[in-house]
Nucleic acid binder design. Structure first.
Lengths: 340, 340
DNA sequence: TTGAAAGCGCTACCAT
DNA sequence: ATGGTAGCGCTTTCAA
């Protein structure tokens, strides 16, 4: 069927080894022989068999990527970023979707290891950020890099965004616009939600800006909860003049609620989200947001993982924080009619 | 390091073969022996080595998925649909991103075949839909299923949506709303663009509704071109009362242009898109659309591919057309003030 | 510069 | 019911 080294060897009357070395440009093969081998290989359409090579070399050049949801553009972009570094180096990416389920995640990781991937990049779906599965993983000598979510107390390779910095950046941006009654539509009780809230509070404190308790309203992570939360916020007196929303869907819901109430964005209320999901500039009012630099997270994780794979000794766990950046669009444009 | 069958065998004083058969529940192993083997395997944390197994069985249980863009939610959903069928059967998915580039695509396919994937699911990025690469692929006995795009004149396994049906469905929906001046923001000169246009024209003809030439305006595939195209359409007399847009981004742009002109959606102009990208209900006016059932496309392609892989003889190429469905949201709601 | 031998961890086939 | 032999296609090691 498909051509093998053995075929090339017998065609040319040389040994298998000569072919193997010639194909890999091993130095101790005469130029003449190498040329002959390469020529015959091309004629036969020879393609090396990675499975056999993997077995012999104990190296598959495959990297597993475990993410909670491919549909979420954040993870899709992490995947793209990782691929952009891995593929040029000859690695293939094997993607597993854990569906935000910790057990599925564990199964997927086991399956990938059984396939002998050289390493793993994992955006863990462990709900409360359980560290124990990853301690065991490290004990098993598997190479892996966590992205986005780092279970507290775990010393492992990690690349992600600092959520407090996200909260600070967004809030700071609103302050710089001249807004002083800044509200927050906060997210769920997980690391990202809490972190962003902390960042928000810290800036208000630093800037000596009051934050009445009713100015922090809980939303989940969807646009419908954003809509409801914003309606609640619109009943607060005095009305906030700016809102930092937990993420972009929440912000989108908030924009709709504001417009429905007959108010202007950003004239009456400026709104900023987080995540820079790719529809952000398709909304009726294009949405300012904090970009988590997910492509860069993927790239960095890939680099880090390759270092781990190539290294003979286990590397000391390294945590890399990628700096997010503000993306200014219409929803926080500085264009109030009367700017006090 | 990791436990092998050999280890279990020597621990138990049985042969390697006994272990191999016991682990695979081969019938001719005594219950007692099997229990002992299984027990020891568990103790040692034995995990079968897929690489070795693949080499011996000539079967990797990996399926390659080649798509033009992971970030596009259509393809991400196809991937999810395929995974939902493949993973329960023990297959792993290896994803390759061709970046809408035909050469990259060819390289990726070659790389996946070198890794001896059992089959491929391909959303081809061949620009003009060149069939030749796939004829060669078929000649090489590789099993593959094309999705979304089928090069004309190619007889291969295929799963996708009929674009003419999409055009018909969208237009028919607008007709049923009572609209009679129906415009079309058409897409590029590729299969999808042309097919949807054909479907649109066919319904107008069947329904004996006139379609002045200026009522078909060319947009590319983005929201900015949709915005521009719609502005052009708004200068047509008499004004259209409904628009079928090539895809959702174009429709989103069209909505913005319409609102900016001081007109109401759907009161003055009803607008429908296609693709059901997941932000469609986050727009200022939630967008009606044609859902291409991408999850189902992925599932069906996976099923078809597994049939090909399992079959000893090459199966006769089969083309499956998935029925799209109308998703009605605000942008085509039947709520005109005066309905004639 | 070339090649023979051994082995990677597993399975298929055929004896016993 | 159990096990020996012979691979799968490649690489590593060492000898010629």
């Amino acid at each position: 069927m498909a051509a093998r080294m053995k075929d090339i060897a017998s065609d040319l009357g040389v040994s298998l080894m000569t072919v193997s070395k010639a194909l890999r440009n091993h130095s101790d093969i005469s130029e003449v022989t190498r040329k002959r081998v390469l020529k015959r290989a091309r004629e036969l359409g020879y393609q090396p068999d990675f499975v056999a090579r993997s077995l012999a070399m104990r190296r598959t050049y495959m990297v597993g990527l475990v993410i909670p949801d491919l549909m979420h553009s954040f993870f899709a972009e992490v995947a793209k970023g990782a691929a952009s570094r891995l593929e040029p180096q000859g690695y293939q990416i094997v993607i597993s979707n854990s569906e935000e389920n910790a057990e599925t995640e564990a199964r997927q990781i086991a399956a990938l290891l059984a396939r002998k991937v050289d390493g793993l990049i994992i955006a863990s779906a462990q709900p409360t950020g359980r560290a124990e599965p990853f301690r065991r993983l490290r004990a098993s000598k598997a190479k892996f890099v966590l992205v986005d979510r780092l279970p507290p107390g775990l010393n492992a390779h990690y690349v992600g965004c600092d959520d407090e910095v996200i909260g600070e950046m967004a809030t700071e941006h609103l302050v710089k616009l001249g807004r002083r009654r800044i509200a927050h539509l906060r997210g769920p009780e997980i690391r990202t939600g809490v972190g962003r809230l902390q960042g928000y509070l810290r800036v208000l404190e630093r800037r000596k800006i009051g934050a009445p308790a009713q100015c922090v309203v809980r939303a989940a992570a969807s646009d419908s909860t954003g809509y409801e939360a914003m309606r609640q916020l619109l009943r607060v007196e005095p009305l906030p003049d700016a809102v930092f929303a937990y993420n972009d869907p929440v912000a989108a819901g908030a924009i709709r609620a504001t417009l429905d109430a007959g108010l202007g964005v950003p004239d009456d209320i400026a709104i900023i989200g987080s995540g820079n999901v790719h529809y952000s500039d398709l909304l009726r009012v294009p949405l300012s947001t904090i970009d988590q630099n997910s492509h860069c997270i993927g790239e960095t994780a890939a680099e880090l993982l390759m270092k781990c794979i190539e290294s003979k000794v286990p590397l000391k766990p390294e945590q890399v924080f990628i700096t997010p950046r503000v993306v200014v669009r219409e929803s926080t444009r500085r264009n109030r009619v009367s700017d006090d």
